[in-house]
Simulated scan of single mutants.
Amino acid sequence: MTNRTVVTLVGKDHTGIIAAVCNYFAENDINILNLSMTTVEEFINMVLIVDLDRYKKTFPELTSDLDDIAKRVGCSIKAQHEDIFNMMHRI
């Protein structure tokens, strides 16, 4: 069983946004299981399902690090445990 987390990214698209997030994941042994990305005019919307099984830090450290990346690249990046995400989006 994987420790799956949903990561969402929304913002104005520009060079380096995807690289910043993916480099962080690679550097921290976070595996991207699924990725969906849409761009509409100059805006990007990305949803990633990631596996945190080999991640050495805590979940609050993950969200803090993603906040720092979001500030640096000028977008919004949020992470939620998959179970919480599923509960919030049940019909």
Results as ranks from 00 to 15, higher is better:
19 A>Q: 10
37 M>P: 01
60 P>Y: 05
11 G>D: 04
36 S>T: 12
80 Q>F: 09
86 N>C: 02
89 H>G: 04
62 L>H: 11
86 N>G: 00
53 D>Y: 09
60 P>D: 08
32 I>K: 00
60 P>K: 08
16 G>Q: 06
60 P>C: 06
8 T>P: 07
51 D>N: 14
85 F>Y: 09
55 Y>C: 08
3 N>C: 02
8 T>R: 07
32 I>N: 00
47 V>L: 14
8 T>Q: 04
4 R>S: 12
40 V>E: 03
49 I>Q: 02
89 H>Y: 12
45 N>E: 05
20 A>Y: 02
72 R>C: 05
41 E>C: 04
57 K>N: 11
66 L>N: 08
79 A>C: 08
29 D>G: 00
32 I>Q: 00
31 N>P: 04
4 R>A: 13
7 V>H: 03
2 T>L: 12
79 A>D: 04
9 L>H: 05
48 L>N: 01
29 D>Q: 11
88 M>G: 09
89 H>S: 05
40 V>L: 15
69 I>Y: 12
74 G>Q: 07
4 R>H: 07
10 V>M: 15
76 S>L: 08
11 G>I: 06
78 K>F: 07
90 R>E: 13
43 F>V: 12
55 Y>S: 11
52 L>T: 02
16 G>Y: 12
24 Y>L: 08
36 S>I: 03
21 V>S: 02
65 D>A: 15
54 R>F: 11
76 S>W: 06
77 I>T: 02
50 V>K: 04
69 I>L: 14
51 D>L: 07
84 I>D: 09
57 K>D: 08
2 T>W: 07
61 E>L: 13
78 K>D: 01
10 V>C: 10
42 E>T: 08
6 V>Y: 00
62 L>P: 05
13 D>F: 03
6 V>H: 00
73 V>R: 03
3 N>H: 13
72 R>A: 13
37 M>E: 15
43 F>R: 14
18 I>V: 15
10 V>P: 05
82 E>A: 11
74 G>W: 08
8 T>K: 04
2 T>F: 12
28 N>F: 09
43 F>I: 12
4 R>G: 02
65 D>W: 06
67 D>N: 10
33 L>H: 04
42 E>L: 08
28 N>E: 13
76 S>A: 14
21 V>R: 01
7 V>Y: 04
67 D>E: 07
68 D>A: 15
46 M>P: 03
41 E>L: 11
47 V>W: 01
68 D>C: 14
85 F>S: 00
42 E>Y: 11
56 K>L: 10
1 M>V: 10
7 V>R: 02
72 R>F: 09
32 I>P: 00
66 L>V: 05
30 I>D: 05
21 V>C: 05
8 T>M: 08
5 T>F: 00
75 C>D: 04
54 R>L: 11
64 S>Q: 13
84 I>M: 13
33 L>R: 11
61 E>R: 14
57 K>A: 11
24 Y>H: 14
90 R>K: 14
62 L>Y: 09
31 N>D: 08
20 A>D: 05
73 V>Q: 03
46 M>K: 03
14 H>F: 07
90 R>T: 10
15 T>G: 12
70 A>E: 06
34 N>I: 04
20 A>K: 10
88 M>L: 14
64 S>L: 11
18 I>D: 03
75 C>F: 03
25 F>R: 13
37 M>W: 00
87 M>K: 15
5 T>E: 01
47 V>H: 05
